[in-house]
Design a protein around this nucleic acid. Structure first.
Length: 439
RNA sequence: GUCCUGUUCGUCUAGCGGUUAGGACACCGGGUUUUCAUCCCGGAAACAGGAGUUCGAUUCUCCUACGGGACGCCA
Protein backbone atom coordinates (compact mmCIF):
# COMPACT_ATOMS: atom_id res chain seq x y z
CA UNK A 1 0.00 0.00 0.00
CA UNK A 2 1.37 3.37 -1.05
CA UNK A 3 2.16 5.69 1.81
CA UNK A 4 -0.30 8.56 2.02
CA UNK A 5 1.01 12.03 1.23
CA UNK A 6 -1.41 14.91 1.67
CA UNK A 7 -0.92 18.62 1.57
CA UNK A 8 -2.42 21.85 2.74
CA UNK A 9 -1.72 24.53 0.13
CA UNK A 10 -2.88 27.96 1.26
CA UNK A 11 -2.03 31.24 -0.33
CA UNK A 12 -0.88 33.81 2.21
CA UNK A 13 -3.17 36.62 1.17
CA UNK A 14 -4.96 37.37 4.42
CA UNK A 15 -5.58 36.11 7.90
CA UNK A 16 -5.92 32.40 8.47
CA UNK A 17 -9.59 31.57 8.60
CA UNK A 18 -11.83 28.80 9.90
CA UNK A 19 -12.43 27.25 6.49
CA UNK A 20 -8.73 26.95 5.79
CA UNK A 21 -8.14 25.58 9.26
CA UNK A 22 -10.74 22.87 8.72
CA UNK A 23 -9.17 21.88 5.37
CA UNK A 24 -5.75 21.76 7.02
CA UNK A 25 -7.22 19.73 9.87
CA UNK A 26 -8.81 17.11 7.61
CA UNK A 27 -5.56 16.70 5.68
CA UNK A 28 -3.58 16.46 8.89
CA UNK A 29 -6.04 13.98 10.40
CA UNK A 30 -5.89 11.77 7.36
CA UNK A 31 -2.11 11.77 7.47
CA UNK A 32 -2.13 10.91 11.18
CA UNK A 33 -4.82 8.27 10.77
CA UNK A 34 -2.92 6.50 8.00
CA UNK A 35 0.60 7.12 9.23
CA UNK A 36 1.20 9.29 6.18
CA UNK A 37 2.93 12.60 5.55
CA UNK A 38 1.41 16.05 5.93
CA UNK A 39 2.95 18.63 3.60
CA UNK A 40 2.52 22.38 3.92
CA UNK A 41 2.98 24.20 0.64
CA UNK A 42 2.73 27.95 0.25
CA UNK A 43 0.94 29.01 -2.90
CA UNK A 44 2.43 32.44 -3.32
CA UNK A 45 2.51 32.56 -7.08
CA UNK A 46 0.46 35.75 -7.10
CA UNK A 47 3.14 38.04 -5.75
CA UNK A 48 1.01 41.14 -5.58
CA UNK A 49 -1.40 39.82 -3.00
CA UNK A 50 0.97 37.94 -0.74
CA UNK A 51 2.20 39.41 2.51
CA UNK A 52 4.77 38.38 5.07
CA UNK A 53 2.26 38.98 7.83
CA UNK A 54 -0.25 36.52 6.39
CA UNK A 55 2.44 33.89 6.12
CA UNK A 56 3.46 34.43 9.73
CA UNK A 57 -0.16 34.38 10.88
CA UNK A 58 -0.66 31.15 8.99
CA UNK A 59 2.35 29.37 10.48
CA UNK A 60 1.66 30.64 13.99
CA UNK A 61 -1.97 29.62 14.00
CA UNK A 62 -1.33 26.26 12.41
CA UNK A 63 1.18 25.52 15.15
CA UNK A 64 -1.15 26.82 17.83
CA UNK A 65 -3.74 24.34 16.62
CA UNK A 66 -1.12 21.63 16.79
CA UNK A 67 -1.26 20.92 13.06
CA UNK A 68 2.46 20.48 12.63
CA UNK A 69 3.67 19.70 9.14
CA UNK A 70 6.16 16.99 8.22
CA UNK A 71 7.44 18.89 5.21
CA UNK A 72 7.21 22.57 4.42
CA UNK A 73 8.42 26.03 5.46
CA UNK A 74 10.94 26.15 8.31
CA UNK A 75 10.95 22.36 8.34
CA UNK A 76 12.23 21.43 4.90
CA UNK A 77 11.80 18.10 3.14
CA UNK A 78 12.89 16.17 0.11
CA UNK A 79 10.55 17.87 -2.34
CA UNK A 80 11.28 21.56 -1.75
CA UNK A 81 11.11 24.36 -2.14
CA UNK A 82 7.75 24.55 -0.43
CA UNK A 83 7.17 28.06 -1.70
CA UNK A 84 5.80 28.25 -5.20
CA UNK A 85 7.67 31.49 -5.74
CA UNK A 86 10.89 29.47 -5.55
CA UNK A 87 9.95 26.67 -7.92
CA UNK A 88 10.31 28.40 -11.25
CA UNK A 89 12.75 25.91 -12.76
CA UNK A 90 10.36 23.10 -12.01
CA UNK A 91 7.49 24.96 -13.67
CA UNK A 92 9.58 25.82 -16.73
CA UNK A 93 10.60 22.22 -17.08
CA UNK A 94 7.00 21.06 -16.93
CA UNK A 95 5.89 23.75 -19.30
CA UNK A 96 8.34 22.33 -21.80
CA UNK A 97 6.78 18.90 -21.43
CA UNK A 98 3.41 20.32 -22.43
CA UNK A 99 4.94 22.26 -25.28
CA UNK A 100 6.66 19.13 -26.57
CA UNK A 101 3.33 17.36 -26.41
CA UNK A 102 1.88 20.07 -28.62
CA UNK A 103 -0.68 21.13 -26.04
CA UNK A 104 0.37 24.76 -25.61
CA UNK A 105 -0.20 27.82 -27.75
CA UNK A 106 0.28 31.53 -27.28
CA UNK A 107 -2.40 34.15 -27.45
CA UNK A 108 -2.06 37.81 -26.46
CA UNK A 109 1.21 37.03 -24.76
CA UNK A 110 -0.25 34.36 -22.49
CA UNK A 111 0.23 30.60 -22.78
CA UNK A 112 -2.91 28.50 -23.11
CA UNK A 113 -3.56 24.82 -22.67
CA UNK A 114 -5.48 23.15 -25.47
CA UNK A 115 -8.18 21.04 -23.82
CA UNK A 116 -8.83 17.48 -24.94
CA UNK A 117 -12.56 17.79 -25.48
CA UNK A 118 -13.05 14.59 -23.53
CA UNK A 119 -15.56 14.18 -20.75
CA UNK A 120 -13.62 14.00 -17.51
CA UNK A 121 -14.62 11.70 -14.71
CA UNK A 122 -13.53 12.75 -11.26
CA UNK A 123 -13.48 9.79 -8.92
CA UNK A 124 -14.21 11.67 -5.73
CA UNK A 125 -14.01 9.79 -2.46
CA UNK A 126 -16.78 11.87 -0.93
CA UNK A 127 -19.05 12.53 -3.90
CA UNK A 128 -18.49 9.45 -5.97
CA UNK A 129 -17.99 9.80 -9.72
CA UNK A 130 -18.51 13.34 -10.99
CA UNK A 131 -18.52 14.04 -14.69
CA UNK A 132 -17.58 17.34 -16.18
CA UNK A 133 -16.47 18.51 -19.60
CA UNK A 134 -13.82 21.22 -19.71
CA UNK A 135 -14.99 23.10 -22.75
CA UNK A 136 -12.63 26.02 -23.09
CA UNK A 137 -8.87 26.28 -23.32
CA UNK A 138 -7.38 28.02 -20.31
CA UNK A 139 -4.34 30.09 -19.42
CA UNK A 140 -1.43 28.34 -17.73
CA UNK A 141 1.15 31.14 -18.01
CA UNK A 142 0.28 34.81 -17.74
CA UNK A 143 1.56 37.33 -20.23
CA UNK A 144 3.91 38.58 -17.52
CA UNK A 145 5.61 35.20 -17.56
CA UNK A 146 4.27 33.80 -14.29
CA UNK A 147 2.37 30.50 -14.05
CA UNK A 148 -1.22 30.37 -12.83
CA UNK A 149 -2.82 28.40 -10.02
CA UNK A 150 -4.15 25.41 -11.96
CA UNK A 151 -0.79 24.76 -13.52
CA UNK A 152 1.42 25.13 -10.45
CA UNK A 153 -1.04 23.30 -8.27
CA UNK A 154 -0.95 20.23 -10.48
CA UNK A 155 2.78 20.37 -11.12
CA UNK A 156 3.45 20.61 -7.40
CA UNK A 157 1.11 17.77 -6.54
CA UNK A 158 2.88 15.63 -9.14
CA UNK A 159 6.41 16.52 -8.09
CA UNK A 160 5.63 16.36 -4.38
CA UNK A 161 4.11 12.91 -4.92
CA UNK A 162 0.78 13.84 -3.37
CA UNK A 163 -1.50 10.81 -3.18
CA UNK A 164 -4.73 12.43 -1.92
CA UNK A 165 -5.99 15.90 -2.66
CA UNK A 166 -8.31 16.91 0.16
CA UNK A 167 -9.71 20.38 -0.43
CA UNK A 168 -12.86 22.49 -0.33
CA UNK A 169 -15.77 21.69 -2.60
CA UNK A 170 -15.31 25.04 -4.30
CA UNK A 171 -12.55 23.28 -6.22
CA UNK A 172 -14.73 20.48 -7.50
CA UNK A 173 -15.53 22.32 -10.73
CA UNK A 174 -11.87 23.19 -11.20
CA UNK A 175 -10.90 19.56 -11.06
CA UNK A 176 -11.74 18.94 -14.72
CA UNK A 177 -9.02 21.47 -15.57
CA UNK A 178 -6.62 19.63 -13.33
CA UNK A 179 -7.49 16.32 -14.93
CA UNK A 180 -6.74 17.81 -18.34
CA UNK A 181 -3.33 18.76 -17.01
CA UNK A 182 -2.56 15.36 -15.47
CA UNK A 183 -3.45 13.70 -18.75
CA UNK A 184 -1.37 16.16 -20.76
CA UNK A 185 1.57 15.31 -18.53
CA UNK A 186 0.81 11.64 -18.97
CA UNK A 187 0.66 10.90 -15.26
CA UNK A 188 -2.15 9.40 -13.17
CA UNK A 189 -4.15 11.81 -11.05
CA UNK A 190 -4.20 11.53 -7.26
CA UNK A 191 -7.35 10.60 -5.40
CA UNK A 192 -9.66 13.52 -4.71
CA UNK A 193 -11.81 14.28 -1.69
CA UNK A 194 -13.81 17.48 -1.94
CA UNK A 195 -15.04 18.42 1.49
CA UNK A 196 -18.22 20.42 2.08
CA UNK A 197 -17.89 24.12 2.74
CA UNK A 198 -18.52 26.02 5.93
CA UNK A 199 -21.39 28.44 5.57
CA UNK A 200 -22.04 31.70 7.38
CA UNK A 201 -23.85 31.40 10.72
CA UNK A 202 -26.74 33.29 9.17
CA UNK A 203 -27.29 34.82 5.79
CA UNK A 204 -26.36 33.36 2.43
CA UNK A 205 -23.08 32.00 1.19
CA UNK A 206 -19.91 30.47 2.50
CA UNK A 207 -18.06 31.88 5.41
CA UNK A 208 -15.53 34.47 4.40
CA UNK A 209 -12.67 36.22 6.09
CA UNK A 210 -14.85 39.24 6.70
CA UNK A 211 -17.42 37.37 8.76
CA UNK A 212 -17.38 37.72 12.51
CA UNK A 213 -15.70 34.79 14.17
CA UNK A 214 -14.10 33.54 10.99
CA UNK A 215 -10.47 34.10 11.92
CA UNK A 216 -8.45 31.53 13.84
CA UNK A 217 -6.57 34.43 15.37
CA UNK A 218 -9.69 35.61 17.21
CA UNK A 219 -9.94 32.37 19.12
CA UNK A 220 -6.28 32.30 19.97
CA UNK A 221 -6.53 35.87 21.24
CA UNK A 222 -9.57 34.99 23.30
CA UNK A 223 -7.65 32.12 24.90
CA UNK A 224 -9.83 29.37 23.50
CA UNK A 225 -8.40 25.92 23.98
CA UNK A 226 -6.97 24.80 20.64
CA UNK A 227 -8.18 21.27 21.34
CA UNK A 228 -11.72 22.66 21.60
CA UNK A 229 -11.49 24.42 18.24
CA UNK A 230 -10.08 21.24 16.72
CA UNK A 231 -12.87 19.22 18.26
CA UNK A 232 -15.52 21.60 16.92
CA UNK A 233 -13.99 21.87 13.45
CA UNK A 234 -13.72 18.12 13.17
CA UNK A 235 -17.49 17.93 13.69
CA UNK A 236 -18.20 20.22 10.75
CA UNK A 237 -18.84 17.78 7.94
CA UNK A 238 -17.71 14.74 9.83
CA UNK A 239 -18.69 12.68 12.85
CA UNK A 240 -17.43 9.47 14.44
CA UNK A 241 -20.81 7.94 13.53
CA UNK A 242 -21.79 7.32 17.11
CA UNK A 243 -23.07 9.68 19.79
CA UNK A 244 -19.70 11.01 20.88
CA UNK A 245 -19.09 14.72 20.37
CA UNK A 246 -16.64 15.60 23.10
CA UNK A 247 -13.53 14.10 21.58
CA UNK A 248 -9.84 14.17 22.32
CA UNK A 249 -7.36 14.55 19.50
CA UNK A 250 -6.40 10.90 19.80
CA UNK A 251 -10.02 9.82 19.53
CA UNK A 252 -10.54 11.96 16.44
CA UNK A 253 -7.42 10.64 14.72
CA UNK A 254 -8.49 7.12 15.56
CA UNK A 255 -12.01 7.49 14.12
CA UNK A 256 -11.32 9.83 11.22
CA UNK A 257 -11.67 8.67 7.65
CA UNK A 258 -12.38 10.26 4.29
CA UNK A 259 -15.33 8.03 3.46
CA UNK A 260 -17.17 9.23 6.56
CA UNK A 261 -17.20 12.86 5.44
CA UNK A 262 -20.60 14.38 4.64
CA UNK A 263 -21.65 15.87 1.35
CA UNK A 264 -23.63 18.73 2.84
CA UNK A 265 -22.30 22.13 3.75
CA UNK A 266 -22.24 22.98 7.44
CA UNK A 267 -23.18 26.20 9.12
CA UNK A 268 -20.77 27.65 11.63
CA UNK A 269 -22.17 27.87 15.16
CA UNK A 270 -20.11 29.78 17.67
CA UNK A 271 -22.35 28.69 20.56
CA UNK A 272 -21.50 25.06 20.10
CA UNK A 273 -17.84 25.96 19.85
CA UNK A 274 -18.16 27.77 23.19
CA UNK A 275 -19.90 24.81 24.72
CA UNK A 276 -17.12 22.49 23.59
CA UNK A 277 -14.56 24.94 24.93
CA UNK A 278 -16.27 24.88 28.32
CA UNK A 279 -16.26 21.08 28.27
CA UNK A 280 -12.58 20.94 27.49
CA UNK A 281 -11.92 23.48 30.24
CA UNK A 282 -13.60 21.23 32.79
CA UNK A 283 -11.68 18.18 31.64
CA UNK A 284 -8.28 19.82 31.75
CA UNK A 285 -6.03 18.09 34.30
CA UNK A 286 -5.42 20.32 37.34
CA UNK A 287 -1.76 20.92 36.54
CA UNK A 288 -2.58 21.73 32.94
CA UNK A 289 -5.32 24.13 33.99
CA UNK A 290 -2.87 25.81 36.32
CA UNK A 291 -0.13 26.01 33.70
CA UNK A 292 -2.38 27.59 31.09
CA UNK A 293 -4.18 29.78 33.60
CA UNK A 294 -0.89 31.24 34.76
CA UNK A 295 0.09 31.89 31.18
CA UNK A 296 -3.19 33.71 30.53
CA UNK A 297 -2.72 35.87 33.62
CA UNK A 298 0.75 36.81 32.50
CA UNK A 299 -0.43 37.61 29.00
CA UNK A 300 -3.15 39.89 30.34
CA UNK A 301 -0.94 41.87 32.69
CA UNK A 302 -2.03 40.07 35.83
CA UNK A 303 1.35 38.63 36.73
CA UNK A 304 0.83 39.86 40.30
CA UNK A 305 -1.91 37.23 40.72
CA UNK A 306 0.74 34.59 40.25
CA UNK A 307 3.09 35.66 43.03
CA UNK A 308 1.55 33.39 45.65
CA UNK A 309 1.36 30.05 43.89
CA UNK A 310 -0.30 27.95 46.60
CA UNK A 311 -2.99 30.60 46.98
CA UNK A 312 -3.56 30.69 43.22
CA UNK A 313 -3.76 26.91 43.15
CA UNK A 314 -6.53 26.96 45.75
CA UNK A 315 -8.42 29.55 43.73
CA UNK A 316 -8.08 27.62 40.50
CA UNK A 317 -9.30 24.49 42.23
CA UNK A 318 -12.66 26.06 43.12
CA UNK A 319 -12.99 28.03 39.91
CA UNK A 320 -12.20 25.48 37.20
CA UNK A 321 -15.66 23.93 37.00
CA UNK A 322 -17.27 27.36 36.65
CA UNK A 323 -15.16 28.84 33.88
CA UNK A 324 -16.34 28.51 30.32
CA UNK A 325 -13.29 30.15 28.87
CA UNK A 326 -9.89 31.41 29.93
CA UNK A 327 -10.88 34.78 28.58
CA UNK A 328 -13.06 35.23 31.67
CA UNK A 329 -10.37 34.17 34.10
CA UNK A 330 -8.77 37.49 35.14
CA UNK A 331 -12.07 39.16 35.90
CA UNK A 332 -13.57 36.05 37.44
CA UNK A 333 -10.92 35.88 40.14
CA UNK A 334 -10.00 39.55 40.51
CA UNK A 335 -11.51 40.07 43.97
CA UNK A 336 -9.26 37.41 45.42
CA UNK A 337 -6.42 39.83 44.90
CA UNK A 338 -7.93 43.21 45.57
CA UNK A 339 -9.31 44.34 48.93
CA UNK A 340 -10.84 47.34 47.18
CA UNK A 341 -13.04 45.20 44.95
CA UNK A 342 -16.10 47.12 43.75
CA UNK A 343 -19.64 46.33 44.88
CA UNK A 344 -21.59 45.73 41.71
CA UNK A 345 -24.82 47.79 41.55
CA UNK A 346 -26.95 44.99 40.12
CA UNK A 347 -25.69 42.63 42.79
CA UNK A 348 -26.47 45.21 45.45
CA UNK A 349 -30.04 45.47 44.22
CA UNK A 350 -30.59 41.75 44.49
CA UNK A 351 -29.22 41.56 47.99
CA UNK A 352 -30.66 44.76 49.44
CA UNK A 353 -34.13 43.42 50.15
CA UNK A 354 -33.06 40.91 52.80
CA UNK A 355 -31.94 43.27 55.58
CA UNK A 356 -28.31 42.69 54.72
CA UNK A 357 -26.88 44.96 57.38
CA UNK A 358 -28.40 42.91 60.18
CA UNK A 359 -27.33 39.63 58.59
CA UNK A 360 -23.75 40.79 58.23
CA UNK A 361 -23.51 41.81 61.85
CA UNK A 362 -24.79 38.38 62.87
CA UNK A 363 -22.27 36.70 60.60
CA UNK A 364 -19.49 38.80 62.03
CA UNK A 365 -20.04 37.59 65.55
CA UNK A 366 -20.58 34.05 64.33
CA UNK A 367 -17.28 33.96 62.47
CA UNK A 368 -15.40 35.54 65.35
CA UNK A 369 -16.48 32.63 67.49
CA UNK A 370 -15.22 30.05 65.00
CA UNK A 371 -11.65 28.75 65.12
CA UNK A 372 -11.36 28.77 61.32
CA UNK A 373 -13.54 29.11 58.25
CA UNK A 374 -12.94 25.77 56.60
CA UNK A 375 -15.74 24.58 54.38
CA UNK A 376 -17.47 22.13 56.74
CA UNK A 377 -17.32 24.30 59.82
CA UNK A 378 -18.73 27.29 58.03
CA UNK A 379 -21.49 25.36 56.34
CA UNK A 380 -22.90 23.85 59.53
CA UNK A 381 -22.47 27.13 61.40
CA UNK A 382 -24.48 29.09 58.87
CA UNK A 383 -27.14 26.39 58.77
CA UNK A 384 -27.68 26.49 62.51
CA UNK A 385 -27.59 30.28 62.58
CA UNK A 386 -30.38 30.49 60.03
CA UNK A 387 -32.38 27.92 61.98
CA UNK A 388 -31.84 29.79 65.20
CA UNK A 389 -32.99 33.10 63.71
CA UNK A 390 -35.73 31.36 61.74
CA UNK A 391 -34.55 32.85 58.46
CA UNK A 392 -33.80 31.24 55.10
CA UNK A 393 -30.11 30.37 54.81
CA UNK A 394 -30.17 32.11 51.45
CA UNK A 395 -30.49 35.46 53.22
CA UNK A 396 -27.10 34.87 54.84
CA UNK A 397 -25.48 33.28 51.84
CA UNK A 398 -26.40 35.90 49.29
CA UNK A 399 -25.49 38.73 51.56
CA UNK A 400 -22.23 37.16 52.54
CA UNK A 401 -21.15 36.50 48.98
CA UNK A 402 -21.96 40.06 48.10
CA UNK A 403 -20.01 41.39 51.06
CA UNK A 404 -16.84 39.46 50.38
CA UNK A 405 -16.79 39.63 46.56
CA UNK A 406 -19.15 42.42 45.51
CA UNK A 407 -20.97 40.00 43.23
CA UNK A 408 -23.76 37.46 43.17
CA UNK A 409 -21.97 34.87 41.09
CA UNK A 410 -18.75 33.00 41.59
CA UNK A 411 -17.42 29.71 42.90
CA UNK A 412 -18.94 27.79 45.81
CA UNK A 413 -19.32 30.25 48.69
CA UNK A 414 -18.23 27.87 51.45
CA UNK A 415 -15.07 27.05 49.53
CA UNK A 416 -14.42 30.72 48.90
CA UNK A 417 -14.51 31.42 52.62
CA UNK A 418 -11.98 28.69 53.21
CA UNK A 419 -9.63 30.06 50.58
CA UNK A 420 -9.85 33.66 51.79
CA UNK A 421 -9.47 32.75 55.46
CA UNK A 422 -11.06 34.08 58.63
CA UNK A 423 -9.05 37.27 58.95
CA UNK A 424 -9.68 38.54 55.43
CA UNK A 425 -13.33 37.53 55.47
CA UNK A 426 -13.95 39.47 58.69
CA UNK A 427 -12.15 42.49 57.26
CA UNK A 428 -14.22 42.36 54.13
CA UNK A 429 -17.49 42.08 56.02
CA UNK A 430 -16.45 45.05 58.13
CA UNK A 431 -15.63 47.04 55.02
CA UNK A 432 -19.06 46.27 53.58
CA UNK A 433 -20.83 47.17 56.83
CA UNK A 434 -19.03 50.48 57.03
CA UNK A 435 -19.79 51.31 53.43
CA UNK A 436 -23.48 51.79 54.37
CA UNK A 437 -24.68 50.55 51.01
CA UNK A 438 -28.07 49.38 52.13
CA UNK A 439 -29.73 52.54 53.44
C1' G B 1 -27.10 32.24 -18.11
C1' U B 2 -24.08 27.47 -18.45
C1' C B 3 -21.92 23.50 -15.81
C1' C B 4 -21.12 20.89 -11.24
C1' U B 5 -23.15 19.74 -6.38
C1' G B 6 -26.33 19.18 -2.22
C1' U B 7 -31.39 18.91 0.74
C1' U B 8 -33.17 14.68 8.34
C1' C B 9 -35.35 19.14 14.43
C1' G B 10 -33.36 26.67 14.41
C1' U B 11 -27.92 24.59 14.12
C1' C B 12 -24.26 20.24 13.94
C1' U B 13 -25.38 15.27 13.08
C1' A B 14 -26.95 9.35 13.50
C1' G B 15 -29.65 6.56 10.10
C1' C B 16 -27.41 3.23 4.50
C1' G B 17 -35.86 -0.56 2.58
C1' G B 18 -39.45 -2.29 7.86
C1' U B 19 -36.93 2.55 13.86
C1' U B 20 -41.91 5.25 18.99
C1' A B 21 -36.54 8.74 13.20
C1' G B 22 -31.45 8.60 17.95
C1' G B 23 -27.69 12.16 20.03
C1' A B 24 -25.55 17.17 20.80
C1' C B 25 -25.81 22.78 20.91
C1' A B 26 -29.42 26.45 21.58
C1' C B 27 -34.40 27.05 23.63
C1' C B 28 -38.42 26.05 27.43
C1' G B 29 -39.91 23.64 32.21
C1' G B 30 -38.57 21.14 36.86
C1' G B 31 -35.01 19.50 40.59
C1' U B 32 -30.18 19.68 43.31
C1' U B 33 -26.34 22.97 44.83
C1' U B 34 -30.60 26.70 50.28
C1' U B 35 -25.91 31.83 45.18
C1' C B 36 -24.50 30.35 39.98
C1' A B 37 -22.33 30.05 34.29
C1' U B 38 -21.89 23.47 37.38
C1' C B 39 -24.78 18.89 37.79
C1' C B 40 -29.48 15.85 37.17
C1' C B 41 -34.46 15.08 35.05
C1' G B 42 -38.15 16.37 31.52
C1' G B 43 -40.32 19.08 27.07
C1' A B 44 -41.05 21.22 22.32
C1' A B 45 -38.58 20.64 17.66
C1' A B 46 -36.89 17.35 11.42
C1' C B 47 -37.02 13.31 6.85
C1' A B 48 -38.35 20.20 1.07
C1' G B 49 -42.53 18.82 -2.54
C1' G B 50 -44.32 15.49 -6.43
C1' A B 51 -44.07 11.16 -9.29
C1' G B 52 -42.19 6.31 -9.72
C1' U B 53 -39.64 1.22 -8.08
C1' U B 54 -41.21 -2.00 -4.04
C1' C B 55 -45.45 -5.85 0.04
C1' G B 56 -43.14 -1.56 2.29
C1' A B 57 -39.69 4.23 1.37
C1' U B 58 -36.21 9.14 5.41
C1' U B 59 -33.26 5.43 2.84
C1' C B 60 -33.25 3.62 -4.52
C1' U B 61 -34.67 6.48 -9.50
C1' C B 62 -36.62 10.79 -11.96
C1' C B 63 -38.77 15.73 -11.89
C1' U B 64 -39.69 20.42 -9.39
C1' A B 65 -38.37 23.84 -5.67
C1' C B 66 -34.71 25.71 -2.76
C1' G B 67 -29.44 25.99 -1.10
C1' G B 68 -24.09 25.99 -2.32
C1' G B 69 -20.05 26.24 -5.72
C1' A B 70 -17.42 27.04 -10.38
C1' C B 71 -17.32 29.55 -14.86
C1' G B 72 -10.32 35.33 -14.20
C1' C B 73 -3.79 36.31 -17.34
C1' C B 74 -7.13 35.28 -8.05
C1' A B 75 -5.91 31.10 -5.42
Amino acid sequence: MLKVRVRFAPSPTGYFHIGGARTALFNWLYAKHTGGTFVLRIEDSDMERNTKESLQSLLTNLRWLGLHWDEGPEVGGAYGSYFQSERNDIYQHHLQILKDAGRVYEKEGALWLKVSGKMQTIDDIIHGPVQRLEEKDFVIYRSNGTPVFHFVNVVDDITMKITHVIRGEDHLSNTSKHLELYQAFGVPAPKFAHIPLILKTDGPGKMSKRDRGSLVEEYRNKFFLPEALINYLSLLGWSPKDDREFLSLEEIIQAFDLVGINKTHARFDERKLSFLNAEHMKHLPKEEFFRRGVWVLQQTNHADYVKNEPYLQQIFAIVQEKLRSFEELPHFISYFFDEQYPFEPTALQKVAKHQPQARLVELQSLFQSLPSLDTNTVETAIQSLSKEKNLPAGDYIHTLRFAISGRTVGPSLYHMLGVLGKEIVLKRIQRCVEAHLFS
